[in-house]
Design a protein around this nucleic acid. Structure first.
Length: 399
DNA sequence: ATAACAATAT
DNA sequence: GATATTGTTA
């Protein structure tokens, strides 16, 4: 008994529109069906919508949708329902996108929580899997977290803790909603860090690339454990960069000092900086053309890469004046490394009193000092010869 | 087989 | 300090 009665004249039209809706919805449902496991809610919602519409058609107004009376209401020929139920963009993905790490344990999640949590490792799906996986990751387009609001709430105290959520700060993809529990932390590094919460949080880790130490014996030529550039760490890095006036003028040493991260070495910073520069430098004339700049279509990565505007905003927000466009303008079409939510507590000096309680430099001891050039070189040549062809494009990053 | 990352080498 | 190269891992 709602107001749907009053439009007598358009009754037929409405009916037809409704019908079309239903058809559209059903089609969508068919599509979703495949992902039943992944999008249970979605499926259910669509189903409900369909039912609802049908009931409307037959004259019965379903209770739950009464308020909306979706089908009947669209005098303007709108498609409110579709909009509501179709996960066009943010809806489906964003819910778990979140930031990187959130203090709170994970729990609320959604309403639906498949016990099995998705395990796509099924089998034959492999190819398909990657497909939809990709689509799922489109959530990247959530570049809109306003850095502003983010920054304030963040408690500055945590900084030092790099529980290292996910190591590869740069990994383009790496987000794998591991599992069931939720989005919270997936650690590419697989470091038990969080729990232990003590020392070895970031030093060890073996994130993305080289884990390095296969055997500990032979104590000499072992490569240093890879440093995990957690988002937090990267954030500091960027912060320092800003204060120094940009990646092109900042030097590794300065950066390291500003970062004030215990255990961080110049070389590490240097390496990181190198990569950073590589990524941020101008794309290349190859793209010469201005493909319609359409809209912000960034390759955001796990929240690390963000659209320039944001970066600029962050920079602006920061007390430090300089920098700002250095890369934002240059890398316009690209993206640059930016702090997820750079809480700009650039308070440089305060940091001094930071908790010394850091972790580990465990094997930070100079192992590299003891390398023997001859041997290394020999090995190197050898290996390079072996796989020379393999490595080639590494340096020429597409970016 | 390849891309990305970080450690080393130059 | 900047680049180039190499070793590992995903």
């Amino acid at each position: 008994m709602i107001g749907k009665i009053h439009n007598h004249h358009s009754a037929e039209e409405k009916t037809q529109i409704c019908q079309e809706y239903i058809e559209a919805l059903e089609e969508e449902r068919r599509k979703i069906q495949v992902f039943q496991r992944e999008l249970p809610l979605c499926l259910e919602l669509v189903t409900q919508a369909i039912e609802s519409c049908k009931q409307q058609l037959s004259g019965t107004t379903p209770e739950r949708f009464q308020g909306q009376s979706e089908c009947s209401e669209q005098t303007s020929g709108e498609i409110p329902v579709l909009e509501e139920f179709m996960p066009v963009k943010r809806n489906s993905s964003c819910d778990d996108d979140e930031e990187e790490e959130e203090e709170d344990d994970e729990e609320e999640e959604e309403s639906e929580k498949p016990t099995k949590n998705y395990n796509y490792k099924s089998i034959d799906k492999s190819s398909k899997k990657s497909d939809w996986l990709k689509s799922v990751q489109l959530w990247n387009q959530t570049p809109d977290l306003p850095p502003i609001e983010e920054s304030s709430p963040r408690k500055v105290s945590v900084i030092e803790v790099k529980r290292n959520g996910n190591g590869g700060a740069f990994h383009p993809f790496k987000k794998e909603k591991s599992g069931g529990t939720s989005t919270a932390t997936n650690s590419p590094c697989s470091v038990p860090a969080a729990a232990a919460g003590s020392s070895s949080t970031e030093t060890a880790g073996g994130c993305g690339g080289g884990g390095g130490n296969k055997e500990d014996k032979e104590g000499q030529s072992q490569r240093k454990a890879r440093r995990c550039w957690s988002p937090e760490l990267h954030r500091r890095f960027l912060n320092a960069l800003q204060q120094l006036g940009g990646s092109h003028v900042a030097t590794p040493k300065q950066i390291r000092e500003l970062m004030k991260v215990d255990g961080l070495t110049n070389d590490e910073v240097k390496s990181h900086l190198q990569k950073y520069r590589l990524h941020t430098r101008r794309p290349t004339p190859s793209m010469h053309n201005d493909n319609n700049p359409q809209q912000p279509q960034f390759v955001v990565v796990g929240g690390i890469w963000v659209p320039p505007p944001e970066y600029a905003a962050v920079a602006t927000a920061t007390p430090t004046p300089l920098l700002s466009r250095e890369e934002s303008s240059v890398a316009a079409p690209k993206s640059i490394y930016a702090p997820i939510a750079a809480p700009p507590p650039p308070a440089p000096q305060t940091a001094k009193s930071r908790t010394p309680r850091q972790q580990c430099k465990q094997l930070d001891s100079d192992q590299r000092a003891s390398r023997s050039h001859d041997r290394d070189r020999g090995i190197r040549c050898n290996s390079s010869a072996t796989s020379s062809s393999a490595r080639t494009s590494t340096a020429s990053l597409a970016f």
